[in-house]
Design a protein around this nucleic acid. Structure first.
Length: 551
DNA sequence: CCCAAAGGCCAC
DNA sequence: AAACGTGGCCTTTGGG
């Protein structure tokens, strides 16, 4: 147990409290680590300074993450849920690079830990909940380590890419040449000499004045319009986005010493997925991924789980037919092989439609065909949707539950159910219920997939550490994580062994969650110099076992 | 000046 | 192509 209080750090080991100077903490932790403790702390507050001092730990129990999970975990006795909010409920991340959050005087981490352990022990499924907390805590360690190590980023490559399409760098308040050129074409085609295409209001007005009847200025809608302004406008939008989101200003702000150091928010999404703050770390456009390059003599091992969510659904529902469709091959190809649908694209659109709750369009049309072939899997998401529509909560495999329905929704339901209720209110209540149903439908799958990914990451982290010697960044180490994808930076001679470790970790994650149920979690793995070279094999092409390796 | 909503687009 | 889940973050716009 470690808690920070100003310049001091408090350690409790075997029930005995020790106070040490904060600067001495890394040495003390390093001294205790060989006895394999599970460090009980707020990872975001304590771990960065340990990493900065060269100290890595193996295991943790994150008191804040555990609190958030236990507040609404399925099958928990509810003692944590009943607590009034306190500092353990805070977001836990320093806002602005200021000092890590210290503990107030009254907060007793020993007491909180005991309360959390008791809550887990008395839950309906203690082992599942314990796994959720420890896996997410390991994720927090990995997140801090990835931020510390950073994603290798070639500023020169990124700048060359920007110069090619935007022209030379200009001051922040001016448009680069590449945009100015397109702007001239857009304005003349629309007869709007002062138009600012960055303003949707101005743009839709100019389009309509030029006889283009559109509902919005979205690129997806404009693509269907035949007008001379459309081509330069679509190009402008693309480049303007690159310039605004990942242009020179982004490089200045986020790439330091050849590394991008994003701040991950573990469990930051309601489903348990991670979010990120600053730099748009989880939305790196494919366009700029050429700038992500391994150091000389090193490689990037890029691995992503193939069709993760449908496979997780197969495991959750115990749907042997769906598991079988994905065994040793592309799951969507396997669905086609059953005869349920004709093409891989249909299988994918139909599955995503089932996971998202599509009602119309191609997705909605295909869902019943899948339901016929995979009744158990489809019934599971349908049940989750009905539960949400009723105003109930649902939970993932390991017990992470949805938040309760907001009071506004309950009030709306009451109003709609009253005698002589306004028809508009009733319609609104039904729409809100359907929204909630789509949320709970997706939650069980997205959330359980996030649990699989946490187990994968946690297992892999241990394997990578064991593959080398010395400090974290001298060994194969994680540098990026994106829902169902990881990047490992590794010495070139170890890259193939890392690829094997990544696969072994995926198999281990599958066993942790689904025991001996025969569902596969194959990966697309690429050993590359540049992230951009790791694109998955052509989706409609032949695909043996989802394995790819580039020179 | 700060702040939030709207529209839009990036990722999975 | 679209509209069916989870997010972050950009610019514009309008309010205090």
């Amino acid at each position: 147990m470690v808690a920070l209080r100003g310049d001091a750090a408090e350690l409790t080991t075997a029930g005995r409290l020790r106070r040490v100077a904060r600067a001495a903490l890394p040495g003390v932790v390093a001294g205790l680590e060989p006895s394999s403790p599970r460090w009980v702390w707020d990872t975001t507050a304590v771990y960065p300074e340990l990493l900065a001092a060269g100290v890595r730990v193996a295991r943790a129990w994150d008191l804040r993450l555990a609190r958030a999970i236990l507040r609404r975990a399925a099958g928990a006795p509810g003692r944590v849920a009943a607590l009034p909010p306190d500092a353990w409920d805070d977001a836990g991340q320093a806002d602005d690079g200021a000092l890590p959050l210290d503990l107030g005087g009254d907060l007793d981490p020993v007491e909180e830990h005991a309360r959390q352990l008791a809550e887990v022990a008395d839950a309906a499924r203690p082992a599942a909940l314990r796994l959720l907390v420890t896996a997410e805590s390991a994720g927090a360690l990995a997140a801090a380590e990835m931020r510390f190590a950073g994603l290798p980023w070639r500023r020169d490559v990124h700048e060359r890419l920007l110069a090619e399409v935007l022209g030379p760098r200009v001051p922040a308040d001016r448009r680069p040449e590449g945009l100015e050129r397109l702007l001239v074409g857009i304005r003349s085609a629309l007869g709007a000499p002062a138009l600012n295409p960055d303003s949707p209001v101005e743009l839709i007005r100019a389009l309509r004045a030029a006889g283009v009847e559109v509902e919005s200025t979205r690129a997806s809608e404009l693509r269907g319009v035949d007008h001379a302004a459309v081509a330069p406008l679509l190009e402008y939008k693309k480049l303007a986005r690159l310039h605004a989101a990942n242009g020179w200003a982004w490089l200045d702000a986020w790439v330091v010493d050849g590394r991008f150091h994003p701040e991950y928010l573990v469990g930051g999404v309601v489903t348990g997925r991670w979010a990120a703050r600053g730099g748009g770390a989880l939305q790196l456009p494919k366009q700029v991924r050429a700038a992500v390059q391994a150091d000389p003599g090193w490689k990037l091992v890029v691995a992503d789980a193939a069709q993760l969510e449908p496979r997780v659904l197969a495991g959750l529902a115990g749907d042997r037919a769906m598991a079988e469709a994905g065994r040793g091959r592309d799951l969507y190809a396997g669905i086609v092989a059953t005869g349920a649908v004709a093409t891989r694209q249909s299988a994918k659109v139909g599955m995503l439609g089932a996971l998202y709750g599509a009602t119309g369009g191609e997705g909605g049309r295909l869902v019943p065909r899948l339901a016929q072939r995979f009744p158990q899997a489809l019934a599971l998401v349908e049940r989750a949707a009905r539960e949400g529509e009723r105003g109930g909560t649902v939970a993932t495999l390991l017990g992470r539950a949805t938040p309760p329905v907001p009071e506004e929704r309950r009030a709306l339901d009451r109003e709609a159910a009253a005698d002589g209720a306004d028809e508009r209110v009733q319609r609104r209540a039904r729409a809100v219920a359907r929204d909630r149903g789509r949320f709970t439908r997706n939650f069980v799958v997205q959330g359980t997939a996030a649990e699989w990914a946490l187990c994968w990451l946690a297992d892999l982290r241990g394997r990578l550490w064991a593959m080398g010697d010395g400090p974290l960044t001298a060994r194969p180490h994680l540098v990026y994580f994106l829902h169902d994808e990881v990047l490992v930076h590794a010495p070139a001679e170890q890259a193939e062994a890392v690829a094997e470790a990544v696969r072994a970790a995926a198999a281990a994650a599958g066993r942790l969650l689904f025991a001996d149920f025969p569902v596969d979690f194959p990966l697309d793995v690429a050993v590359v110099d540049r992230y951009a070279d790791a694109d998955a094999p052509a989706e409609d092409g032949p695909q043996a076992d989802g394995v790819e390796s580039s020179p």
